[in-house]
Simulated scan of single mutants.
Amino acid sequence: MTQATQDTEMAGTENGPVVYYDGSCPLCTAEIGHYAGQPGGDRLSFVDVSQPGTNPGPDLTPRDAMRRFHVRLPDGRLLSGARAFVAIWEVLPRWRWAARIAGLPGMPTVLELAYRAFLPVRPLLSRIAAALGAKPANSCPQGK
């Protein structure tokens, strides 16, 4: 891995946030494909943390990045869970409405609770997504 690749994996780019995702998860890969294909998706960088040798930074292990959704902002701040999704929505014009709703009083807490409720059912939903044709970016589950 080159130093430039390591730097990109560990800090947000000048264009926008770095999104860490589990490429061995069909559901996660489908979702990232959706975001990447949206107008503004080119302002996001995507790092598949299931790939061996991925270095998301000293404050995030690949294993932790695969267990919970993380986004690193251009200033280096690391967000996780619902806040990470909101950071993506703020970049994508078609999703800004969701970011505005997420900013309403009490909504960050509600969204985080919903995200935490989703995490235990993610493996089942991923299997369902795979049965419906979703494909993982790779089949190299590191740290699972």
Results as ranks from 00 to 15, higher is better:
M1A: 15
M1Q: 02
T2S: 15
T2C: 00
Q3N: 07
A4H: 01
T5Q: 13
E9K: 05
G12L: 01
G12C: 06
E14L: 09
N15I: 06
N15F: 10
P17S: 13
V18A: 03
V18C: 08
V19A: 11
Y21S: 03
C25S: 14
P26M: 08
P26R: 07
C28G: 04
C28S: 11
C28H: 08
T29D: 05
A30W: 00
Y35G: 09
A36K: 14
G37M: 09
G37I: 13
Q38T: 03
Q38A: 12
P39D: 11
D42E: 01
L44H: 00
L44M: 00
S45Q: 02
S45R: 15
V49P: 02
S50A: 15
Q51Y: 00
G53C: 06
N55L: 13
N55S: 09
N55W: 09
P56T: 02
G57N: 06
P58H: 04
L60I: 12
T61W: 07
P62Y: 01
R63F: 00
R63S: 13
D64V: 11
D64I: 01
A65M: 00
R67P: 00
R68C: 01
R68I: 03
H70Y: 12
V71S: 09
L73M: 13
L73H: 07
G76T: 08
G76M: 00
R77A: 05
R77E: 04
L78S: 07
L78F: 04
L78D: 08
G81H: 07
A82F: 09
W89A: 06
E90P: 08
E90C: 05
L92M: 06
P93L: 11
W97R: 01
W97Q: 01
A98I: 12
A98V: 02
R100N: 05
R100Y: 12
G106W: 04
P108Y: 04
L111Y: 07
E112M: 13
E112L: 07
L113E: 07
A114C: 15
Y115I: 06
R116K: 14
R116Y: 01
A117W: 12
L119T: 14
L119F: 09
V121M: 10
P123A: 10
L125G: 11
L125P: 03
A131R: 10
L132E: 08
L132S: 05
A134C: 14
K135Y: 03
K135T: 14
P136C: 09
A137H: 15
N138M: 13
N138P: 08
N138A: 10
C140Q: 15
